[in-house]
């Protein structure tokens, strides 16, 4: 087995030391600092980006909150305004209605008074006509001439009955 030939050991170990030391120098002085720096820098950039994203998210949340608050205030204000306008309109309408109904009531009362008067007039003239007619009928049929008082009483009684 060539592995157990001691005459090769010195050269193997010598070149092992030389090459290993060279590689160690490359790794320790060049590779590790450079790669480490890149990895650190990347980690730093990622952390910074994350921090910034977090800060921006906070700002966004605040903006959303402010927007919602403003929206709620506007909604309240709009509601108040609506209620005010509605009640004002209602008051105006009520006033107008009352005014109109007063006018109409007055007119109705006047008309009723007129009608009552016309009816009374009509009844008064009816009474006279009825009394005359009754006098004539009595005179023609019975040949009597009743007194005016009797005639009036009879007509009044008859009118009461017909009522």
């Amino acid at each position: 087995m060539p592995q157990f030939d001691p005459s090769t050991f010195s050269s193997q170990i010598f070149w092992l030391v030389v090459t290993f030391a060279l590689l160690y120098w490359v790794v320790a002085k060049i590779a590790v600092p450079r790669i480490g720096e890149v990895l650190d820098q990347r980690a730093r950039v990622i952390q910074e980006d994350l921090d910034r994203a977090l800060a921006l998210k906070g700002e966004t949340d605040q903006a959303v909150q402010a927007y919602e608050k403003a929206m709620a205030a506007a909604r309240d204000q709009a509601g108040d305004h609506m209620r005010a306008v509605t009640s004002e309109a209602k008051a105006t309408a009520d006033a107008r209605t009352a005014e109109l109904s007063a006018v109409v009531g007055k007119q109705v009362a006047e008309a009723e008074a007129r009608i009552a008067k016309a009816k009374e007039d009509a009844l008064a003239s009816l009474r006279g006509i009825a009394a005359d007619t009754a006098k004539d009928v009595v005179a023609k049929l019975a040949g009597l001439s009743p007194s005016q008082a009797d005639l009036d009483a009879a007509v009044t009684a008859a009118l009461k009955e017909t009522k």
Binding site: S7, T8, S10, S11, Q12, W15, L16
Partner: peptide, 16 residues
């Protein structure tokens, strides 16, 4: 001491 540059040393050189 035999410190010859051998095929072993050559492949160590390749590796590094």
């Amino acid at each position: 001491l035999d410190l010859s540059y051998t095929n072993s040393a050559l492949f160590m050189t390749f590796a590094i």
